[in-house]
Design a binder for these strands. Structure first.
Lengths: 131, 131
DNA sequence: TCAATAGTTTAGAATTATTCTAAACTGATA
DNA sequence: TATCAGTTTAGAATAATTCTAAACTATTGA
């Protein structure tokens, strides 16, 4: 709990009850892919002490502070990945499931140059799956 | 015009007035990235002979028949790409602009195996840009 | 040629994820 | 501990998309 508060403080985020609850749930050491909706459901299963609006706010704050990675593969389902290290994804549209691909399992040996005036911010490789 | 009708017929799509209008606009030889909204706006600038619902229906039909490629990078803007050949994209979130990357400008020299029971359907490399 | 019909289009309503609003609340600071 | 900027909240608003069911039309085969 103190660990969580430290993480938040180190990012200049006040460790409020809601943020601690959310961070505690997200950063338990296992990699997760959540949506605002799924997270809200999991958190409010017991007590209702976080609103959906706060879940949205918090996920976005965490992304800005690079505690999470936002992944949009499906217009009606935006994923947030607790694994912020360099890696890629498998995506099954049918199952709406995201799977991590370790960075060392992919090698991109030729990369195009960014257009003039732009820099490369992130390289996202998504391998779409089917049955 | 006959060419367009042939394309539609070859995909088992009745060449209705609306589909011909849309296909004629999309498949003029130049690669495009459209959204349902942008396409609707362009088509109905003169006369109003396609409804928005039909634009959505048609874009999805065309995707199913592999005349278009759907690209979702931003939850509130789904793109349809008239270039269905193997290629990748630059994406500027700020400008909401998609740019094609020629397939030969990228080389992926190591690819992970698909999980058991799944096949690789599509490999999508998106290079996110910033200023 | 034309009637039957399966496929298509449509306006407008419904849905759904997300964002907004503005009022209440709270952690941090002095 | 009072202050106040930052945060949370319910509920309304927004916006992209899908749905519905009635009207329309391309195709077919007699």
């Amino acid at each position: 709990m103190q660990r969580i508060k430290e993480i938040l403080r180190s990012k200049n985020l006040r460790p409020t009850k809601q943020r601690v609850l959310i961070a505690d749930h997200l950063f338990d050491g296992t990699d997760k892919h959540v949506t605002a909706e799924s997270l809200f459901r999991e958190l409010s299963s017991n007590k209702r002490d976080v609103s959906l609006a706060t879940v949205y706010n918090t996920l976005h704050e965490f992304c800005k502070k690079e505690l999470l990675n936002k992944i949009t593969l499906d217009a009606d389902k935006v994923y947030f990945d607790t694994n912020t290290s360099l890696h890629h994804h498998f995506f099954s549209e049918k199952d709406k499931i995201l799977l991590d691909i370790k960075n060392e399992d992919v090698k991109i040996s030729l990369m195009p140059k960014a257009p003039k005036g732009k820099k490369i911010k992130k390289v996202e490789l998504v391998i779409h799956l089917e049955d």
